[in-house]
Each structure stands twice: as C-alpha cells, then as structure tokens.
C-alpha cells in the first residue's frame, strides 16, 4: 500500500515552515519523536501565539487556550496528535 501523508500532519509541517521559518528539509525530516519546544530555537512563547491562530485558521478549528500547556509542543507527534483530535471534533 502506498504511503499517503495525513492531511493534518501535512498542514502542521507547512505551518512550521510558514510561521517559524524553519527550513523545509528540517521539517520534512521530523518524526513523532522530534522534540519541538526547547529544541527548536524559532519556537518561543511569542511564536506560539501566531502558530495557534494560524492553526485555527488553516484547520478551521477553535483552540481553547486552557487546552494549551507545555506538553502540546513537546514533540512533533504531540502537536500533530492535538491537531488531529481538534479536527476530529
């Protein structure tokens, strides 16, 4: 069976390139275990504000900021899992 990229995961990869300006090759190489917050210099608490709003606009979801804690940006996998759960409603 051919590998088909999950659309939400693809959207998150594009988001990291567009909002944080991380090199596309770096983002393409990310796996679920790739650490984000603390490991990616572009991702600071101010960048998170823009990232969340853009994520809402692109995925057509609403993010309650009470849902957002340090774990969300711990790894690429945790961010994608959060986004998928929101998209699924």
């Amino acid at each position: 069976m051919p590998f088909v990229a999950d659309p939400t995961e693809t959207a998150i990869r594009e988001l990291l390139v567009d909002v944080l300006g991380v090199a596309p090759a770096t983002v393409a190489a990310m796996t679920d275990d790739t650490p984000l917050f603390g490991a990616l210099p572009e991702l600071d608490s101010m960048a998170v504000a823009g990232l969340l709003t853009e994520m809402e606009d692109r995925l057509d979801i609403m993010i309650d900021d009470d849902d957002v804690d340090g774990d969300l940006f711990e790894s690429f996998g945790s961010l994608v899992a959060f986004a998928k759960a929101k998209v699924a409603g």
Binding site: S45, A49, G50
Partner: peptide
C-alpha cells in the same frame, strides 16, 4: 479576519504576562 489578528495579539499579551508571573485571561 480582524478576529484572528486580535486573537494573536491577545495570546501574545497573555504569554508575556505569564512569563512575568501574572495570570491574565482573554
């Protein structure tokens, strides 16, 4: 959308307050 611009600014303010040890809500 104006609401998206406003939301980002509010999130930035809340994040800044949080780093200064102050809890602010939207």
């Amino acid at each position: 959308k104006g609401a998206s611009l406003l939301k980002t600014m509010i999130r930035t303010r809340i994040a800044g307050d949080k780093e200064a040890g102050k809890a602010t809500t939207e």
